[in-house]
Write a protein that binds this DNA or RNA. Structure first.
Length: 321
DNA sequence: AACCTTAGCAACCGCCTCGAG
DNA sequence: ACTCGAGGCGGTTGCTAAGGT
Protein backbone atom coordinates (compact mmCIF):
# COMPACT_ATOMS: atom_id res chain seq x y z
CA UNK A 1 0.00 0.00 0.00
CA UNK A 2 1.65 3.20 -1.11
CA UNK A 3 1.59 6.14 1.17
CA UNK A 4 -0.18 9.17 -0.18
CA UNK A 5 1.80 12.38 -0.23
CA UNK A 6 0.83 14.70 2.56
CA UNK A 7 -0.51 18.10 1.61
CA UNK A 8 1.98 19.50 4.14
CA UNK A 9 4.66 18.97 1.50
CA UNK A 10 2.97 21.47 -0.79
CA UNK A 11 5.22 24.38 -1.61
CA UNK A 12 4.19 27.65 -0.01
CA UNK A 13 2.05 26.16 2.76
CA UNK A 14 2.67 28.02 6.00
CA UNK A 15 4.11 26.17 8.99
CA UNK A 16 4.86 27.05 12.57
CA UNK A 17 2.83 28.82 15.25
CA UNK A 18 -0.67 29.92 14.43
CA UNK A 19 -1.58 33.60 14.52
CA UNK A 20 -4.73 34.95 16.17
CA UNK A 21 -6.06 35.80 12.73
CA UNK A 22 -5.60 32.23 11.50
CA UNK A 23 -7.26 30.87 14.64
CA UNK A 24 -10.20 33.20 14.12
CA UNK A 25 -10.56 32.19 10.48
CA UNK A 26 -10.50 28.49 11.32
CA UNK A 27 -12.97 28.78 14.21
CA UNK A 28 -15.39 30.92 12.23
CA UNK A 29 -15.25 28.53 9.28
CA UNK A 30 -16.01 25.49 11.42
CA UNK A 31 -18.70 27.31 13.40
CA UNK A 32 -20.35 28.42 10.15
CA UNK A 33 -20.64 24.75 9.24
CA UNK A 34 -22.24 23.94 12.55
CA UNK A 35 -19.12 22.35 13.95
CA UNK A 36 -18.88 19.87 11.10
CA UNK A 37 -15.55 19.98 9.32
CA UNK A 38 -16.17 17.63 6.45
CA UNK A 39 -12.87 17.08 4.69
CA UNK A 40 -9.85 18.43 6.52
CA UNK A 41 -7.88 18.32 3.32
CA UNK A 42 -10.31 20.60 1.60
CA UNK A 43 -10.80 22.88 4.59
CA UNK A 44 -7.85 25.27 4.13
CA UNK A 45 -8.93 26.25 0.64
CA UNK A 46 -12.57 26.60 1.68
CA UNK A 47 -11.65 28.66 4.73
CA UNK A 48 -9.01 30.73 2.97
CA UNK A 49 -6.13 29.48 5.06
CA UNK A 50 -2.61 28.92 3.76
CA UNK A 51 -2.19 25.81 5.91
CA UNK A 52 -2.34 22.12 5.24
CA UNK A 53 -5.42 20.22 6.37
CA UNK A 54 -3.48 18.24 8.88
CA UNK A 55 -2.21 21.36 10.56
CA UNK A 56 -5.78 22.71 10.73
CA UNK A 57 -7.07 19.50 12.27
CA UNK A 58 -4.30 19.49 14.86
CA UNK A 59 -4.86 23.13 15.75
CA UNK A 60 -8.59 22.54 16.12
CA UNK A 61 -8.46 19.27 18.08
CA UNK A 62 -5.61 20.29 20.36
CA UNK A 63 -6.30 23.95 20.94
CA UNK A 64 -9.34 25.60 19.44
CA UNK A 65 -12.07 23.03 20.13
CA UNK A 66 -14.61 24.65 22.50
CA UNK A 67 -14.82 21.68 24.87
CA UNK A 68 -11.12 21.65 25.70
CA UNK A 69 -10.31 21.95 29.38
CA UNK A 70 -7.20 23.99 29.95
CA UNK A 71 -5.14 24.62 33.04
CA UNK A 72 -3.30 22.48 35.53
CA UNK A 73 -4.04 18.79 35.93
CA UNK A 74 -5.69 17.89 39.22
CA UNK A 75 -4.33 15.16 41.50
CA UNK A 76 -7.24 12.96 40.53
CA UNK A 77 -6.48 13.45 36.85
CA UNK A 78 -2.83 12.59 37.44
CA UNK A 79 -3.76 9.44 39.35
CA UNK A 80 -6.10 8.41 36.59
CA UNK A 81 -3.44 9.00 33.97
CA UNK A 82 -0.96 6.86 35.91
CA UNK A 83 -3.52 4.11 36.29
CA UNK A 84 -4.49 4.20 32.65
CA UNK A 85 -0.87 4.40 31.51
CA UNK A 86 -0.09 1.24 33.43
CA UNK A 87 -2.86 -0.52 31.56
CA UNK A 88 -2.50 0.98 28.12
CA UNK A 89 1.07 2.22 27.87
CA UNK A 90 1.67 5.20 25.60
CA UNK A 91 -1.79 4.98 24.06
CA UNK A 92 -2.40 8.65 24.66
CA UNK A 93 -5.53 8.82 22.57
CA UNK A 94 -7.06 5.94 24.53
CA UNK A 95 -6.07 7.56 27.80
CA UNK A 96 -7.53 10.87 26.65
CA UNK A 97 -10.97 9.29 26.18
CA UNK A 98 -11.13 8.84 29.96
CA UNK A 99 -10.27 12.45 30.77
CA UNK A 100 -12.98 14.82 29.74
CA UNK A 101 -11.69 17.90 27.95
CA UNK A 102 -8.08 16.77 27.81
CA UNK A 103 -6.35 16.06 24.53
CA UNK A 104 -3.95 13.23 23.85
CA UNK A 105 -1.24 15.75 23.08
CA UNK A 106 -1.76 17.58 26.35
CA UNK A 107 -1.72 14.34 28.35
CA UNK A 108 1.39 13.17 26.53
CA UNK A 109 3.16 16.45 27.22
CA UNK A 110 2.07 16.42 30.86
CA UNK A 111 3.28 12.85 31.26
CA UNK A 112 6.68 13.59 29.78
CA UNK A 113 7.26 16.85 31.63
CA UNK A 114 5.60 16.23 35.01
CA UNK A 115 4.26 12.79 35.88
CA UNK A 116 7.21 10.84 34.56
CA UNK A 117 9.62 12.89 36.65
CA UNK A 118 7.36 12.69 39.69
CA UNK A 119 7.29 8.91 39.52
CA UNK A 120 11.04 8.76 39.13
CA UNK A 121 11.43 10.99 42.18
CA UNK A 122 9.18 8.59 44.07
CA UNK A 123 11.32 5.66 43.01
CA UNK A 124 8.82 4.21 40.58
CA UNK A 125 9.72 3.14 37.07
CA UNK A 126 7.31 5.11 34.84
CA UNK A 127 7.44 2.46 32.13
CA UNK A 128 7.13 -0.77 34.13
CA UNK A 129 5.16 0.88 36.96
CA UNK A 130 7.21 -0.95 39.51
CA UNK A 131 9.53 0.15 42.23
CA UNK A 132 12.99 0.97 40.98
CA UNK A 133 15.96 -0.79 42.57
CA UNK A 134 17.44 1.34 45.40
CA UNK A 135 20.50 2.35 43.39
CA UNK A 136 18.25 3.74 40.66
CA UNK A 137 16.20 5.89 42.97
CA UNK A 138 16.99 9.57 42.93
CA UNK A 139 17.22 10.26 46.65
CA UNK A 140 15.48 9.62 49.93
CA UNK A 141 13.84 13.01 50.19
CA UNK A 142 10.61 11.77 48.68
CA UNK A 143 10.49 8.54 50.62
CA UNK A 144 7.25 9.60 52.27
CA UNK A 145 5.59 9.60 48.89
CA UNK A 146 6.66 6.07 48.07
CA UNK A 147 3.77 4.10 49.57
CA UNK A 148 1.11 5.90 47.59
CA UNK A 149 3.11 5.80 44.42
CA UNK A 150 3.79 2.11 44.88
CA UNK A 151 0.20 1.26 45.63
CA UNK A 152 -0.99 3.12 42.61
CA UNK A 153 1.60 1.77 40.30
CA UNK A 154 1.20 -1.77 41.55
CA UNK A 155 -2.57 -1.67 41.47
CA UNK A 156 -2.55 -0.23 38.02
CA UNK A 157 -0.06 -2.80 36.80
CA UNK A 158 -2.10 -5.58 38.33
CA UNK A 159 -5.27 -4.39 36.71
CA UNK A 160 -3.59 -4.70 33.35
CA UNK A 161 -6.07 -4.42 30.52
CA UNK A 162 -8.43 -1.98 32.07
CA UNK A 163 -12.16 -2.31 31.92
CA UNK A 164 -14.93 -0.63 33.86
CA UNK A 165 -14.66 -3.08 36.72
CA UNK A 166 -10.94 -2.58 36.90
CA UNK A 167 -11.30 1.16 36.89
CA UNK A 168 -13.75 0.90 39.75
CA UNK A 169 -11.24 -1.17 41.64
CA UNK A 170 -8.70 1.56 41.04
CA UNK A 171 -11.22 4.07 42.37
CA UNK A 172 -11.71 1.86 45.39
CA UNK A 173 -8.02 1.95 46.07
CA UNK A 174 -8.02 5.69 45.65
CA UNK A 175 -10.77 6.04 48.25
CA UNK A 176 -8.82 3.85 50.60
CA UNK A 177 -5.78 6.01 50.17
CA UNK A 178 -7.83 9.13 50.75
CA UNK A 179 -9.27 7.52 53.87
CA UNK A 180 -5.78 7.18 55.18
CA UNK A 181 -4.85 10.77 54.63
CA UNK A 182 -5.73 11.77 58.20
CA UNK A 183 -6.88 10.37 61.49
CA UNK A 184 -10.38 11.72 61.45
CA UNK A 185 -12.64 8.72 62.06
CA UNK A 186 -15.68 10.34 60.54
CA UNK A 187 -13.80 11.07 57.38
CA UNK A 188 -12.47 7.55 57.38
CA UNK A 189 -15.93 6.03 57.66
CA UNK A 190 -17.28 8.29 54.92
CA UNK A 191 -14.44 7.34 52.64
CA UNK A 192 -14.75 3.69 53.46
CA UNK A 193 -18.40 3.76 52.61
CA UNK A 194 -17.60 5.53 49.39
CA UNK A 195 -15.00 2.92 48.72
CA UNK A 196 -17.35 0.05 49.45
CA UNK A 197 -19.94 1.59 47.19
CA UNK A 198 -17.52 1.50 44.33
CA UNK A 199 -16.34 -1.98 45.08
CA UNK A 200 -19.57 -3.63 45.96
CA UNK A 201 -21.49 -2.22 43.07
CA UNK A 202 -19.05 -3.28 40.42
CA UNK A 203 -20.45 -6.16 38.47
CA UNK A 204 -18.28 -9.16 37.76
CA UNK A 205 -15.30 -7.75 39.55
CA UNK A 206 -13.66 -9.07 42.66
CA UNK A 207 -13.62 -6.51 45.40
CA UNK A 208 -10.45 -6.67 47.45
CA UNK A 209 -12.20 -6.80 50.78
CA UNK A 210 -8.95 -7.81 52.41
CA UNK A 211 -7.94 -4.18 52.01
CA UNK A 212 -11.23 -2.95 53.39
CA UNK A 213 -10.88 -5.40 56.21
CA UNK A 214 -7.56 -3.96 57.25
CA UNK A 215 -9.12 -0.53 57.23
CA UNK A 216 -12.03 -1.67 59.35
CA UNK A 217 -9.69 -3.40 61.71
CA UNK A 218 -7.90 -0.15 62.32
CA UNK A 219 -10.97 0.99 64.27
CA UNK A 220 -10.88 -0.34 67.85
CA UNK A 221 -13.46 -2.98 68.57
CA UNK A 222 -14.41 -3.64 65.01
CA UNK A 223 -13.87 -6.81 63.07
CA UNK A 224 -16.29 -7.25 60.28
CA UNK A 225 -14.77 -9.55 57.76
CA UNK A 226 -13.19 -12.91 58.09
CA UNK A 227 -9.54 -12.33 57.34
CA UNK A 228 -8.30 -14.07 54.30
CA UNK A 229 -11.56 -14.05 52.43
CA UNK A 230 -12.95 -12.03 49.62
CA UNK A 231 -16.47 -11.24 48.65
CA UNK A 232 -16.87 -12.44 45.10
CA UNK A 233 -20.50 -11.80 44.42
CA UNK A 234 -21.71 -9.67 41.58
CA UNK A 235 -25.28 -9.97 42.76
CA UNK A 236 -26.41 -6.46 43.62
CA UNK A 237 -28.96 -7.62 46.19
CA UNK A 238 -26.34 -9.62 48.04
CA UNK A 239 -23.91 -6.74 47.79
CA UNK A 240 -26.49 -4.44 49.32
CA UNK A 241 -26.98 -6.87 52.21
CA UNK A 242 -23.27 -6.85 52.88
CA UNK A 243 -23.06 -3.12 52.59
CA UNK A 244 -26.04 -2.45 54.82
CA UNK A 245 -24.77 -4.80 57.47
CA UNK A 246 -21.36 -3.20 57.32
CA UNK A 247 -22.94 0.20 57.83
CA UNK A 248 -25.12 -1.08 60.67
CA UNK A 249 -22.20 -2.72 62.36
CA UNK A 250 -20.02 0.35 62.10
CA UNK A 251 -19.69 2.00 65.47
CA UNK A 252 -19.75 5.77 64.92
CA UNK A 253 -18.19 6.63 68.26
CA UNK A 254 -14.78 5.34 67.39
CA UNK A 255 -12.17 8.02 67.33
CA UNK A 256 -8.61 7.49 66.21
CA UNK A 257 -6.13 4.88 65.11
CA UNK A 258 -3.88 5.56 68.04
CA UNK A 259 -5.05 2.60 70.09
CA UNK A 260 -5.49 0.26 67.15
CA UNK A 261 -3.76 -3.06 67.29
CA UNK A 262 -1.54 -4.08 64.42
CA UNK A 263 -3.59 -5.49 61.60
CA UNK A 264 -2.19 -9.02 61.69
CA UNK A 265 -2.96 -9.37 65.36
CA UNK A 266 -6.53 -8.38 64.69
CA UNK A 267 -6.64 -10.70 61.74
CA UNK A 268 -6.14 -13.56 64.14
CA UNK A 269 -8.94 -12.51 66.45
CA UNK A 270 -11.81 -12.00 64.08
CA UNK A 271 -15.00 -11.58 66.08
CA UNK A 272 -17.22 -13.09 63.45
CA UNK A 273 -17.00 -14.21 59.89
CA UNK A 274 -18.25 -12.73 56.69
CA UNK A 275 -20.65 -15.65 56.48
CA UNK A 276 -22.18 -14.30 59.68
CA UNK A 277 -22.77 -11.05 57.88
CA UNK A 278 -24.26 -12.36 54.71
CA UNK A 279 -24.90 -16.10 54.61
CA UNK A 280 -24.95 -17.59 51.17
CA UNK A 281 -22.49 -15.23 49.57
CA UNK A 282 -19.67 -16.97 47.77
CA UNK A 283 -16.41 -16.33 49.49
CA UNK A 284 -13.02 -17.13 48.07
CA UNK A 285 -9.86 -17.82 49.96
CA UNK A 286 -7.45 -14.95 49.79
CA UNK A 287 -5.03 -17.16 47.93
CA UNK A 288 -7.16 -16.62 44.85
CA UNK A 289 -6.76 -12.91 45.26
CA UNK A 290 -3.09 -13.44 45.81
CA UNK A 291 -3.11 -15.08 42.41
CA UNK A 292 -4.52 -11.94 40.92
CA UNK A 293 -1.80 -9.97 42.61
CA UNK A 294 0.94 -12.21 41.33
CA UNK A 295 2.53 -9.64 38.99
CA UNK A 296 3.11 -7.35 41.94
CA UNK A 297 6.45 -8.79 42.81
CA UNK A 298 7.51 -5.59 44.47
CA UNK A 299 4.66 -5.66 46.96
CA UNK A 300 4.72 -7.68 50.12
CA UNK A 301 2.04 -10.27 50.75
CA UNK A 302 -0.98 -8.39 51.96
CA UNK A 303 -1.60 -11.03 54.62
CA UNK A 304 1.84 -10.59 56.12
CA UNK A 305 1.55 -6.99 57.07
CA UNK A 306 3.03 -7.49 60.51
CA UNK A 307 6.11 -9.24 59.19
CA UNK A 308 7.08 -6.53 56.78
CA UNK A 309 8.58 -3.44 58.33
CA UNK A 310 7.59 -1.20 55.46
CA UNK A 311 3.92 -2.07 55.74
CA UNK A 312 4.08 -2.28 59.52
CA UNK A 313 5.30 1.28 59.71
CA UNK A 314 2.68 2.32 57.25
CA UNK A 315 -0.08 0.73 59.32
CA UNK A 316 1.20 2.04 62.61
CA UNK A 317 1.20 5.46 61.10
CA UNK A 318 -2.53 5.14 60.59
CA UNK A 319 -2.18 4.92 56.82
CA UNK A 320 -0.90 8.49 56.85
CA UNK A 321 0.77 8.48 53.49
C1' DA B 1 23.35 42.93 31.37
C1' DA B 2 24.59 39.04 28.73
C1' DC B 3 24.82 34.46 28.06
C1' DC B 4 23.65 29.64 29.00
C1' DT B 5 20.60 25.97 30.51
C1' DT B 6 16.30 23.95 31.37
C1' DA B 7 11.31 23.24 31.28
C1' DG B 8 7.05 23.44 29.03
C1' DC B 9 4.33 22.88 25.24
C1' DA B 10 2.57 23.74 20.47
C1' DA B 11 3.29 21.91 16.24
C1' DC B 12 5.29 18.83 12.89
C1' DC B 13 6.52 14.33 10.75
C1' DG B 14 5.88 9.95 9.18
C1' DC B 15 3.72 5.66 9.89
C1' DC B 16 -0.62 3.18 10.75
C1' DT B 17 -5.49 2.15 10.30
C1' DC B 18 -9.86 2.37 8.33
C1' DG B 19 -13.36 2.59 5.02
C1' DA B 20 -15.08 3.53 0.41
C1' DG B 21 -14.86 2.17 -4.20
C1' DA C 1 -9.02 -8.94 -2.47
C1' DC C 2 -6.96 -4.87 -3.47
C1' DT C 3 -5.99 0.21 -3.88
C1' DC C 4 -6.03 4.64 -2.28
C1' DG C 5 -7.42 8.75 0.16
C1' DA C 6 -8.06 10.59 4.55
C1' DG C 7 -7.86 10.84 9.38
C1' DG C 8 -5.57 9.27 13.60
C1' DC C 9 -1.74 8.44 16.43
C1' DG C 10 2.73 8.55 18.86
C1' DG C 11 7.39 10.19 18.70
C1' DT C 12 10.01 14.09 18.11
C1' DT C 13 11.38 18.81 17.23
C1' DG C 14 11.93 23.48 17.97
C1' DC C 15 10.41 27.79 19.91
C1' DT C 16 9.76 30.59 24.03
C1' DA C 17 10.06 31.93 28.68
C1' DA C 18 12.02 31.40 33.09
C1' DG C 19 15.81 30.58 35.98
C1' DG C 20 20.71 30.32 36.91
C1' DT C 21 25.53 31.82 36.46
Amino acid sequence: MGRSPCCCHDVGVKKGPWTEEEDKTLVEHIQKRGGHVGSWRGLPKAAGLNRCGKSCRLRWTNYLRPDIKRGNFSDDEERLIITLHAGHGNKWATIATHLEGRTDNEIKNHWNTHIRKKLLRMGVDPVAHQQLPPDHQLDGSSAALLPEALLWAAAAATLGGLDIGALRQAQLLQHLLQAGSNNDATNLVANLMAASNVGLNSSNSIVPNILLQDKFNMLPGTNYLQPGYLCNTSNFAEQDVVQQQLINAMSPGTSSFAAAEPADQLCNTAAFTARDIAPGIDMLPVQEFAGLMEPMEQLPNLCSLESDSFWKELLEDGYRL
